[in-house]
Design a protein around this nucleic acid. Structure first.
Lengths: 200, 200
DNA sequence: TGACAATTACCTACTAGTAGGTCAGTTTTG
DNA sequence: CAAAACTGACCTACTAGTAGGTAATTGTCA
């Protein structure tokens, strides 16, 4: 696991992390301030600096926690060798559908990617790792589905994984702007139909 | 056409627009300042305010110009009834491939979508319109391809259009972060293979 | 057990820097 | 000349971050 903060976190520190994560997912990293957190949580800016020395460190802690949480879920999904690959894909898209059901949340790393050049290098590297890990995980699931005769791919698994991952991230972004809750649902439907053997 | 600035623009105004467009596409709207433009162009901040009274108005002018330019291309592509639908799709993805060949440009509206909640409402509405227009244009092209026997779709054209559009936007975002120029190329390849009759 | 020293968790008050924006005045140009 | 283009000086609001202080809790040891 990639841990920025060594030991257990205080209740306040966790509240700060929770709120910062939400603020990045909705407004973006550069569009939230320590003052926003201070106002919402009733703690002073100095107190936030006590828990997270800099905004960069706060961002790192938020991303690390998100990546670890998501990553643990990926491991858990892929563990059960008996489970159909399509069911694994269903589990994978669940968080995305969850975000799509909120008024304006997107994937944390998707949000950060939109302002990647305006981000401190520590955050850039973490988003990069997230994208690679998820696309490689998806590639594995697709290969498994093909080996089991569940999926029929029009192209190599790695390229299809890129299509699926990009489509999920893009659909979330579009959904938040247009406000149409069907945006992501439709995309997931088409992906599954295209993967299913004999769908075309 | 959606024109914010009524008459012809001065050379300086156009330089400001060009640079602002590039800055939004790379860094994002909230991560660039009048000072950045002032430094790069050698004009004062006050001079920028002379041409564009507020940052919101500058943003509006940038998006309007971008949307008009892109929209004119869409009309031109769809004009020739004889041209194959696949060729039209090739023309459509050309700008995306162009951005992908730069180190860190993405679609202007894709960049704005990442910080949509931190944007003035005038910009939000414009990004929304862009997304709807492009998905509806893509839907038309897909329907045309089906009618001509060029495409075989696994789902209704509107849903496939959402997949394609989201995948293009998402792939650009991922490409900029990971730096892999093949990210978008792979996605386009898979899309075309999945659309082609009998590809699966 | 009680005394003392750290440590944790916060606070008020402040800094230097940057953001977008204003305005009166000046230069340039048709 | 007059309109258009531009500038320097300035303003207010807000940013991340710092300095220094205060309680309360916790660990250690005679």
């Amino acid at each position: 696991m990639t841990t920025t903060t060594p030991k257990v976190l205080s209740k306040t520190a966790e509240q700060i992390l929770d709120l910062a994560e939400m603020l990045i997912q909705t407004r973006g990293y550069n569009a939230f301030s320590y003052q926003d957190i201070s106002d919402a949580l009733g703690v002073t800016k100095a107190s936030i600096h006590y828990h997270f020395a800099s905004k960069t460190r706060l961002g790192m802690a938020v991303v690390d926690r998100y990546v670890d949480r998501f990553g643990a879920a990926l491991v858990a999904i892929a563990e059960d060798q008996a489970r159909p690959a399509m069911a694994m894909l269903d589990f994978y898209v669940e968080p995305y559908l969850g975000y799509a059901s909120t008024p304006d949340q997107v994937c944390l790393c998707g949000a950060l990617a939109g302002e990647i050049l305006a981000l401190p290098p520590e955050l850039r590297a973490r988003v990069d790792r997230f994208f690679r890990a998820h696309q490689s995980w998806l590639t594995g699931i697709l290969k498994r589905g093909v080996a089991r005769g569940e999926f029929k791919l029009a192209a190599p698994a790695g390229k299809v994984a890129r299509l699926i991952f990009g489509a999920l991230q893009g659909a979330l972004l579009v959904k938040r702007t247009t406000g149409d809750p069907a945006q992501l649902r439709d995309v997931v439907t088409v992906i599954k139909l295209q993967l299913a053997t004999g769908s075309t």
